[in-house]
Design a protein around this nucleic acid. Structure first.
Lengths: 133, 133
DNA sequence: TATCTGTTCTATTAGTAGTATAACAGACAA
DNA sequence: TTGTCTGTTATACTACTAATAGAACAGATA
């Protein structure tokens, strides 16, 4: 598995796990229909509690990233990428807004902000540059 | 004051307050040297606890947005906008990364993402479009 | 002296993050 | 049928954060 937890970080581990799975989907390492480990095996694998993994899976299901079948287990949603509906766009806007406000206060131009976005975008999709430390 | 709290939101009120002050600085409604209300008066004004306001001021001081003087009170940092040092850029990147990964999963192109950024950027700087609900 | 400022202390309530054990119900293979 | 895997639910506990509350201290100033 490609999961790397940072137990010392202030970011909750269930958020870390969730983000890494989403990034795995984004870079197509996890493709539609692919199996995900069971809650128990993944929990044992990365050394965290079953409930923590279950919480992540429930949220990913809720947001449409995965499907959960009683016996077969957990799979990446077979329909492929999600629709960028108004709901999603609005939540994205609300998350971007404080980042942009702070950027302005740090003398970052909108062009510099967009260049940064480009950079990270390529970094995510580049299969080589796995880790970001 | 231009502060509007949403007590029903899941976002902690100290985060809301902090973000609104930062956005006030970004849109230049709060200019270098300007006075901010005392912890007590602001707390009474928006109906929250003194300690909550104090926490926000301490963090804003720590991040260089404001100065706190024993008697004079709290002022917007007189040096103007902050430097976009490596430290800040790295923290911004870490916040942007999960947003971009999720955007990719929602079929958003990098260009659409950047258009969204443009839109919010203008929305912040536009003195008219105050609220974002 | 009285009053304002930020600051610090202690204490309480409520909620979240994470762990731990256990049990239930469905699926499936031996 | 039995055993074992799956997700799911329930309960309980610890630790931490968010928020409130009241009080007190120290410096500045009118």
């Amino acid at each position: 598995m490609f999961i790397k937890m940072d137990m010392a970080a202030d970011k909750p581990i269930y958020i870390q796990l969730k983000e890494q799975i989403i990034e795995g989907i984004a870079r197509k390492e996890l493709q539609p229909g692919d199996d995900l480990p069971s809650v128990r095996s993944l929990a044992a694998d990365i050394g965290i509690n079953v409930h923590t993994v279950n919480k992540v899976y429930q949220q990913l299901k809720q947001e449409g990233y995965i499907q959960i079948h009683r016996k077969r287990g957990v799979i990446i949603h077979p329909d492929g990428f999600l629709p960028a509906d108004e709901n999603y766009i609005n939540s994205l806007k609300e998350e971007l807004r404080p980042l942009l406000a702070a950027s302005i206060c740090h003398n970052l131009t909108i062009d510099e902000f967009k260049e940064l976005s480009d950079e990270i975008y390529l970094q995510i999709l580049n299969k080589e540059g796995e880790q970001h430390e």
